[in-house]
Design a protein around this nucleic acid. Structure first.
Lengths: 222, 222
DNA sequence: TCAATTTATCACATAATTATCACATAAACG
DNA sequence: CGTTTATGTGATAATTATGTGATAAATTGA
């Protein structure tokens, strides 16, 4: 069962997707404009967000960009034929896939399933991501650098994994502290800096992926 | 490592895919038209075939159909925007997935990986597994070390078997307790450590396979 | 039942990790 | 430029996690 957020100003579009998705056993929530979908996406974790390109208040592209500032939730774009193909095809705005209207709900759900599967590899398959020579295996809790096994401490793993799971998202020290150290940690902000330092040392040349956001925190940027 | 066959008449398309795929450690062969790809696909076993829709001599749809007469090799279709959407979306011709040009090689490889994983169900577990001189026979519930029968206690067998069945997967103490001891065991976490200790002692030099994941638990790593 | 075996827990030894501090360095700012 | 502020970093004490031997409790099998 997936949690799906559908954003479209046309009621019948939302309904046809809802109907089909619920038939497949998914949970569907709806948004009617770009502002609303951004709001909902920030406050709740969805497995996928389906965004119409043409929406009141905030268009789909901008909504997608806005969402991506805080979450990596997969996004499927819906566009009418002829609408700004280049943006769509370039995947510049960070959408995972798109469907051109008119579509069949079956088609949309097939893509939804494909995207989610791609983003949540089956339990059997190892969950591995790679950035150049930096390979991160979440399943086996291991990291290798140019094929060489890295030896990280527990906090370093936790920190790196969190950064990577939220890659390209700016993370404040507060956010990192509460997510990696736990809400009940009341120590010093600067503790993070030390762990970032150690993580960087362990990552060798791939320390470049960990970028400092002055006055804010850090992010893993690829 | 997968064997990938890329068929496209555009050289730069083939090259961009080859480059990215080889970076991921795959083997890539190329075909420049529909006839050639059918020929190659029939004579050699690939893990996946990437087919452009528009190709000289024989188009991608027909090539796919032709290949499917003799092989079930997964097929990923590449199509330019606007090309016969209906056929594509219907997956009528038996393609496993499709990507619309222009695409990012990353996107293509992500789909390649997804398709291959989907098509290679985990091999049936062999009743006997061997890691160097450590032989584990699940059927007869026995373990031998360099040919010498090891004498494990029931819990040691259970623990070892579980670790091995989940090799290369990080297992928390909680997970081990609930899976090996049972969900209704409410004892001490550290009990595991003692059993790991005894198991290690029994495995001799092959204790190296059992690695401690500090702050987390253990895993069997090969 | 009772001895043998297995299991769970404890206590202590050892090893690894972590948080913090102090100072160095770099960036931002007027 | 000099000042202020933020981040980088080495050192280290304190903390925490794991390894392990001993032992008590539980289970098994004759």
């Amino acid at each position: 069962m997936y949690k799906i957020l559908v954003a479209d100003d046309e009621k019948n579009i939302r309904e046809v997707i809802r109907e089909y998705a619920e038939f497949e056993g998914h949970e569907v929530k709806e948004a009617v404009d770009g502002m609303q979908v951004v709001e909902m996406a920030k406050n709740e974790d969805f497995d996928i967000i389906i965004l119409d390109v043409m929406m009141p208040k905030l268009d789909g592209f901008s909504a997608c960009k806005e969402i991506r500032k805080t979450k990596n939730t997969p996004v499927l774009m819906l566009s009418a034929r002829g609408e700004e193909y280049d943006k769509l095809f370039g995947f510049e705005i960070g959408a995972d896939d798109y469907v051109v209207k008119p579509f069949s709900p079956k088609e949309v759900l097939a893509r939804v399933n494909a995207i989610i599967k791609r983003n949540q590899p089956a339990a059997a398959a190892s969950e591995i991501v790679r950035f150049e020579g930096l390979e991160i295996n979440f399943t086996s809790r291991s990291v290798s650098i140019d094929g060489e096994k890295a030896n990280l401490t527990p906090k370093e793993y936790d920190l790196l994994f969190y950064l990577v799971r939220n890659k390209n998202i700016a993370l404040t020290r507060d956010k990192l502290l509460s997510e990696v150290w736990g809400y009940d940690f009341f120590g010093d902000d600067r503790t993070i800096d030390t762990h970032i330092k150690m993580l960087r040392n362990n990552l060798g040349e791939y320390r470049k992926f960990i970028v400092t956001l002055r006055g804010m925190g850090y992010k893993f940027e690829v």
